[in-house]
Design a protein around this nucleic acid. Structure first.
Length: 429
DNA sequence: TCTGGGGTCCTAGGACCC
DNA sequence: TCTGGGGTCCTAGGACCC
């Protein structure tokens, strides 16, 4: 039986989350900014209509924002993650198989829904998510993941479909006409670079890509694009992945709210980032065999002295212990630090990850084993306290108290759904 | 003044081995 | 004058995604 996939995607997800809790934003131009209020990572339709591109730096928009009353929000990932969990929970009820692909979209397996009007099914999904959590979604349906993605794009862009589009309902000639009307760059897996190269060869729309010679494409662009082409032809090459395998690397990095020059402050930041990364590491029950630490100055400033450096520090015994990982990261930092630069960013990457379980048979001396056991309990307590009392309730001393390097977020909304003291207050008259 | 963060996969080329 | 061939592993870099 041919497979069939639905891709459900929230519209302007971050902006829509903000609107759920602040209805005054409805109908107005809204952007959500990246960390440090750097650039736009989500735009309302009103903002898109003004021609603002994804990733535009906020400071470049000041004038336009003033003229059109654009409202900015700092990103509130705690809120978005919680809203995402609610949406994914609802969507899970619509299919036995779900792949959560990103914070705002998931694939549902709708293979074998033979007596179901899938367009109507999509409308039911839209209505339920809207009613239960207040977020708008669009649904695209196709016999491969790539076609479902493309169908979702159509559902979003063409109002006549009212947010749901099933590619399979079109006759062959209609499919061809549709594909011909869509830019090749809209295809999942075709980014800016490849789109430009394809266009130079006259492959400008999706139909041309579908009709290209797979062998030539593979030779010129690699196996990934060949797969994309096959998927466009309806040959499913990408399966639904219900369980996500453990991460192979875990990273935590941030740009600073203001430039940092002193080693002492970099140490604080690197300690804090390592603690974050180690928390994620323990959450997936892994240990790391190496820590990579890196720093850089602001690369956008051509007139300032530039410096970029990183170092991977191997660990004798793989671990998930925040204190040990931080010690290694700090050791690396001290080797790459050069005085006199205005540092703009630092980061930590945990590498050579392995399952914690496969490591249990380590041979230890008695006292060492004891110490290791105590540390493990300490980390467990740390995680538990932070889970119950909120992130950052318990921290490493090395993270510092002042944290002058911390990210800026001047326009942040409350964590309405995850902090007791920030619950929205509703009153009726 | 002000330009995000966190991932994956694939390929090419070098080192090394027999 | 002549100087193999093939496999594997690792790493860096490029491309993509949201």
């Amino acid at each position: 039986m041919p497979q069939n996939f639905a891709l459900v995607d929230c519209n302007n997800f971050y902006v829509s989350c903000e609107r759920v809790f602040d209805p005054s934003l409805e109908g107005r131009p809204v952007v959500v900014l990246s960390n440090n209020d750097g650039c736009c990572v989500a735009r309302s339709n009103e903002v898109k209509a003004l021609g603002v591109k994804m990733g535009t730096p906020w400071f470049q928009l000041r004038e336009l924002a003033e003229r059109h009353g654009i409202i900015a929000r700092s990103s509130n990932y705690t809120l978005y993650a919680d809203m995402s969990n609610r949406v994914m929970g609802i969507l899970a009820g619509f299919s036995p198989c779900q792949e959560i692909y990103s914070i705002d979209e998931c694939f549902l397996d709708v293979t074998g829904f033979v007596n179901v009007d899938l367009t109507g099914y999509g409308q039911t999904i839209r209505a339920r998510v809207s009613r239960w959590v207040g977020l708008p979604v669009c649904v695209g349906i196709g016999t491969t993941k790539t076609l479902a993605k493309l169908a979702n794009h159509v559902a979003k862009k063409r109002p006549q479909y009212d947010g749901v589009f099933d590619y399979g309902t079109l006759a062959d000639s209609e499919q061809a006409a549709l594909l011909e009307s869509i830019d090749v760059g809209e295809v999942w897996g075709v980014g800016g670079r490849i789109a430009a190269r394809l266009q130079r060869r006259g492959i400008t729309n999706v139909l041309a890509l579908r009709e290209a010679d797979p062998k030539i494409l593979r030779r010129e662009f690699g196996v990934t694009l060949e797969r994309t082409l096959r998927e466009l032809r309806g040959e499913s090459c990408l399966d639904l992945e219900e369980v996500n395998p453990p991460k192979q690397q875990i990273m935590c990095s941030r740009s600073f709210g203001q430039p940092v020059m002193r080693l002492a402050e970099l140490r604080e930041a690197v300690t804090a980032y390592t603690a974050r990364a180690a928390g994620k590491l323990r959450a997936q029950n892994s240990v790391a065999g190496a820590v990579h630490v890196f720093v850089n100055t602001n690369l956008f400033k051509p007139n300032e002295p530039r410096y970029q450096a990183g170092l991977a520090v191997p660990l004798l015994v793989p671990t998930s212990d925040a204190l040990e990982l931080a010690k290694a990261a700090i050791g690396g930092l001290e080797q790459i630090y050069r005085p006199g630069y205005r540092y703009q960013k630092a980061g930590v990457m945990l590498l050579e990850l392995d399952s914690a379980r496969s490591r249990q048979s380590q041979l230890f001396d008695e006292p060492e084993a004891d110490a290791a056991e105590r540390r493990k309990r300490l980390m467990k307590t740390l995680d538990e306290v932070n889970r119950r009392m909120g992130k950052g309730a318990l921290r490493l001393a090395g993270e510092g108290l002042q944290q002058r390097w911390k990210v800026r977020s001047d326009y942040k909304s409350p964590c309405y759904t995850t902090r007791w003291d920030e619950l929205p207050v509703v009153s009726a008259r």
